[in-house]
Design a protein around this nucleic acid. Structure first.
Lengths: 177, 177
DNA sequence: TGTTTTATTAACACTATGTCAATAAAATAG
DNA sequence: CTATTTTATTGACATAGTGTTAATAAAACA
């Protein structure tokens, strides 16, 4: 429990402010390659040196933003997963609604290599839970299923989420029936 | 015809050498964010200022590398597409073999936003040609099909291409039968 | 209230960017 | 082959960004 003592509220605040700053900047200009520590520190209204006190580099900061998003996503998905008699499509729409709500940030994060890998793992886990519950048998790899859904989600985000969660859910269900 | 006169062989050579340099660097270290004009010019054994004579920035250079790859891919695909009695799976394997052969560079390019969009368009075109020839009817969007295949290809490359073209082709065929 | 922890500041050496003008070199045309 | 045109090279410049350090300030906590 006491292995990592991050007790100081100021340190917690600083990390939060840096994360908020980089998210703000990315939503305004989604070009990750244009990010600099200078700009982030300026937006956070904290000294540039303070940045290096909490993060190794910009990639490290983004990695932590990615982890936060996944904590949030999984905490929102778990109540849905626990309702046994909820059908697949409803579950899928809950998932897609999360995407729709966070579409701007997620579109940027999908350019971050670590994010795609984590999303793949998450999707695979969700598929395994679903398939077990319905006793599906198939020679199809769970990785193939997860990566094809991921491809659809990435396309959805790339195109500015012009389609509704319901449409995407229908297409996915039709694809895998 | 004479709108763009790129007649000088030296200019052509310089562009080629810069492209070769950036590809070499990326295959050694696939982290696009670590690229600098300095390193590329040094590897190309050309002056840094010469770089700016031919490219706006690193992104512009990468974009041109991406275009070259697509020219190559499409020129290799077109003879296969013209053989009418070739079945889908054979055509798919030709496509996947290209991926396998260029897996290292392609894995890097998939981190470049423009590359994913172009690959999506290419896949969609190939699907349209295939579907027309077999008179398939489906309410499934071609975009959904293209993006799901793209997701599988990206997963394949991310995992170091541990599976054969034949295995991936089988999985894709099974997914969409 | 005094001690500990963290943030701030300014400075440093370093790397990288993008541009420019003078010069060199190579290709092409006459 | 020579003269002209085009492109590459070089070194310099101002600017921006990096990563670190040491001294100082400020906030939290005991």
């Amino acid at each position: 429990m006491t292995t990592h003592k991050k007790q100081d509220p100021r340190a917690i605040r600083s990390k939060r402010v840096f994360k908020e700053a980089v998210v703000d900047i990315l939503i305004e200009n989604p070009d990750i390659s244009k990010l600099t520590v200078q700009k982030i520190a300026q937006r956070a209204e904290l000294n540039r040196a303070t940045f290096y006190l909490h993060f190794i580099d910009i990639n490290d900061l983004l990695k932590q933003v990615v982890y936060d998003i996944f904590d949030d996503l999984l905490s929102k998905m778990s109540p849905t997963l626990q309702i046994d008699n909820l059908n697949n499509q409803e579950q899928l729409i809950t998932f897609l609604d999360y995407f729709y709500k966070h579409r701007k940030l997620l579109a940027v994060l999908f350019e971050h290599p670590g994010f795609i890998k984590k999303m793949h793992m998450t999707l695979k886990d969700l598929i395994v839970i679903r398939r077990k519950s319905e006793g599906a048998d198939s020679t199809l790899s769970m990785d193939i299923l997860a990566s094809s859904i991921l491809g659809i989600l990435m396309w959805w985000l790339r195109n500015g989420v012009q389609f509704s969660s319901e449409y995407i859910a229908n297409q996915i269900v039709e694809l895998y029936r």
